[in-house]
Computed example of a mutant assay.
Amino acid sequence: MRRSRITAYVTSLLLAVGAALTGAATAQASPALAATGYVALGDSYSSGVGAGSYISSSGDCKRSTKAYPYLWAAANSPSSFSFTACSGARTGDVVANQLTPLNSTTGLVSVSVGGNDAGFADVMTTCVLQSESACLARIATARAYVDSTLPGKLDTVYSAISAKAPSAHVAVLGYPRFYKLNGSCLTGLSEAERAAINGAADYLNSAIAKRAADHGFTFGDVRGTFTGHEICSGSAWLHSLNLLNIGESYHPTASGQSGGYLPVFNGLA
C-alpha cells in the first residue's frame, strides 16, 4: 500500500513536471512563429510611399515591394501575406477597407495609422507655405487633436483588429522625427519650425504607444533607427519637399523602409 502511494505520487509529480515543461515551451513560442498568416495594415508609412517599386495592382494605395511589410514577408515566408495598407489612410479607412483578410487564424498583424487623422499633410503644407507663427499654431491644433480625439479613433481600430483576429500578435509602428536640428539644411523651415515638427512626432508617438499598450499590442519606435538619417542630416532616409512627386514628400525612402522600419519590425514579429 505504501509503495502504491509512492508510485502514485511519483507518477503525478512527473505528469505535473511534463505539463509545466509543455506550458513553458508554449509560453516561449513566438506568436509570429506560429502564424498561419501575416496581414499588413495602415497608412503610407506602411504601404511604402516614397520607396518606389510600387505594385501596379495597388493603384493609388502605392504599395511598394520595398516597404517593410513586403520585405519581411519575402524574408520570412509566412503561409499567407495580405498587404492592405494604403496611402492616405486614416483610422476610419483601416476599419472600413483593410480588415477583410483578418480572421481567427491570423498570427501576425502590423499597422501604422494616426498621422493622417492628426493632419500631418496639412501641418507640413502650412509650415512650408505660410509663416512660422502659422506653422506653430497649426502644430498646436494637431497636438490638441491628439489629446482629444485620436485616442478614441485608435481604440476603434485596435478593437476591430482584436475582434477579427483574436489570436494575432499585433505590432503597432510609429513615426520618425523628420529633422536633424542644426543640420545641413541652409534654407527652408526655421529651426523653431523643425523642432516643433519633431516635437509633434514625439507627441503623436507617445499617444499611439499608450493606446497600443492598453490593447495588449507592442509598439515599434522607429525614432532610434532613423537617428542620423533625418532630413538635414546629410544622409537622409526621408524625402524632403519633392516638387516633382509631391506625394512622396516627408516619407521614408527605400533605405528608410529597409534600414529604419524593417529592423524595428523584425524585433517585434
Rank of each mutant, 00 (worst) to 15 (best):
V111T: 14
S112G: 15
V113F: 08
G115R: 09
N116Q: 10
D117S: 12
D117A: 02
D117M: 14
A118S: 11
F120K: 09
F120Q: 10
F120Y: 10
A121I: 15
A121Q: 14
A121F: 07
A121Y: 04
D122I: 11
D122P: 01
V123T: 12
M124V: 15
T125G: 08
T126L: 05
T126S: 01
C127E: 02
L129K: 00
L129M: 01
Q130L: 11
S131N: 01
S131T: 14
S133Q: 14
C135R: 03
L136E: 12
A137Y: 11
R138N: 08
I139M: 01
A142T: 14
R143I: 05
V146N: 06
S148G: 04
S148Y: 06
L150M: 15
P151W: 09
G152M: 12
K153V: 08
K153E: 15
K153N: 15
T156K: 12
T156G: 12
V157I: 13
V157F: 06
Y158E: 04
A160G: 08
A160P: 12
A160D: 12
I161K: 03
I161H: 06
S162M: 03
S162T: 11
A163T: 13
A165V: 14
P166E: 08
P166N: 07
H169T: 02
H169E: 11
V170S: 13
V170R: 10
V172K: 08
G174N: 06
G174R: 06
G174C: 02
P176G: 00
P176H: 08
F178C: 00
Y179C: 09
Y179T: 08
L181Q: 09
L181V: 12
G183E: 00
G183F: 04
S184V: 13
C185H: 12
G188Q: 11
L189W: 03
L189S: 01
L189Q: 05
E191R: 15
A192N: 11
E193T: 12
A195N: 04
A196S: 09
I197A: 02
I197D: 13
N198V: 05
N198E: 09
N198P: 00
N198S: 01
A200E: 08
A201C: 07
D202H: 06
L204R: 13
N205T: 07
N205C: 07
N205I: 11
I208M: 14
I208Y: 03
I208T: 15
A209G: 04
K210T: 08
K210E: 07
K210Y: 03
R211D: 04
A213W: 03
T218Q: 06
F219D: 05
G220I: 10
G220H: 00
V222I: 14
V222L: 04
V222S: 04
R223N: 08
T225I: 03
G228N: 06
G228E: 05
H229F: 06
H229V: 01
E230M: 03
